[in-house]
Design a protein around this nucleic acid. Structure first.
Lengths: 201, 201
DNA sequence: GTCTATAGGGGGATAGAC
DNA sequence: GTCTATCCCCCTATAGAC
């Protein structure tokens, strides 16, 4: 069923090196990770990395582009669906926690380095993706208010920031394969977000 | 009424330099900020910094200790008060947003660098402060459930993480002196947290 | 309190051998 | 695809003059 010649996980040496780099960028930060760190972790010398990539920037560029193309494809599918407003909001939250589960390094890099990398022309698309993300959540919240599923007295902008922050920041403590699965966390989070923690309103 | 000889804001050259360093550490990260960056921003040469401080680490050490001593003093006062559980929880949230307003750089540094700095013996107190912070929120949540103010079906540990994350992550977008004041944000946040965003439960 | 000058190490990246 | 060897720049920190 697969067109790939190798049945192992890394489809190519290139992807293997990117995966190693992503883990280091996520844990130590992009600027604090040296090309020697990456090469050491891969068991080669730093000069050899330049056979595969132009620069350290090219590596993080490819990591972020690949991840974001996938994630925003999922958001688009939710926006285009015929489900009601509340179901769409729940799906967007679930998809986001699933992204943390499947691509924790990529999420962490985007969370921590977007502000810095966005300052370079090469990474101008990060600001576009950020605006696109805002558009997704604002649209879902506005549809929710219009349909009567969500309270009308909410500050939409603040609510958007609240959701965005709380969803992505979980990458700081979520451990794939741990006791708490991403879908359990998403359900608990939605419970708090939608109904609050107070006993009575 | 003041024992300070200078009426200006920075009580000493030392504090002025720490303030400059804090801003750079918060914006660029501790590891990515060089002593030359700090010296440039202060209008002196990097070697001159070492007349005031032993090292770059000493600077961030003093910044974090000063801030945390103040913050945890406020948490302790709330825990010791006679207010009911819900009021205490609200006060803890308000104090936290006020801390973001008054010490945004310090909050950002702690948020982004604690994991890295905590790896050094010198900064072992960061892990203790982290445990202390967890203890404060968990206590407040448990008191809330016991008193009947909060729902009994909550996962306390997850709820604590959501509150902690959402409160502190606001340092990423909050701008002191902007349209949204810290107390308005705290109230909106408490509305969402306590009552949820759904129209009906 | 700041400057000059510098030590000693690590940074990203390159050229060419194997 | 990796290694050897290296360039040039920037890093933290120090010693002593002013």
């Amino acid at each position: 069923m697969s067109a790939q010649p190798e049945p192992e996980q890394p489809a190519s040496r290139r992807e293997e090196l990117l995966s190693i780099a992503a883990g280091l960028f996520a844990d130590q930060g992009f600027r604090s990770t040296t090309v020697r760190d990456i090469a050491d972790a891969a068991g080669i010398l730093s000069g050899s990395l330049y056979h595969h990539f132009d620069s350290k920037e090219s590596m993080v560029d490819e990591i972020l582009r690949t991840f974001q193309d996938e994630l925003f494809g999922q958001y688009d599918a939710i926006l285009r669906s015929d489900d009601d407003a509340r179901a769409k909001l729940e799906q967007a939250v679930e998809v986001s926690f699933a992204a943390i589960d499947q691509h924790p390094h990529e999420v962490a890099i985007f969370q921590h380095e977007a502000a810095y990398l966005g300052g370079f022309e090469r990474f101008a698309y990060l600001a576009e993706r950020n605006a696109q993300s805002r558009s997704v959540w604002i649209t879902l919240l506005e549809e929710g208010v219009e349909s009567g599923a969500l309270r009308a007295d909410l500050d939409i902008e603040l609510t958007y920031r609240f959701i965005r922050d709380t969803v992505w920041v979980a990458v700081g403590w979520y451990r794939p394969g741990g006791k708490l699965t991403h879908d359990v966390i998403a359900r608990q989070y939605l419970t708090i977000l939608l109904d609050g923690i107070a006993k009575e309103r």
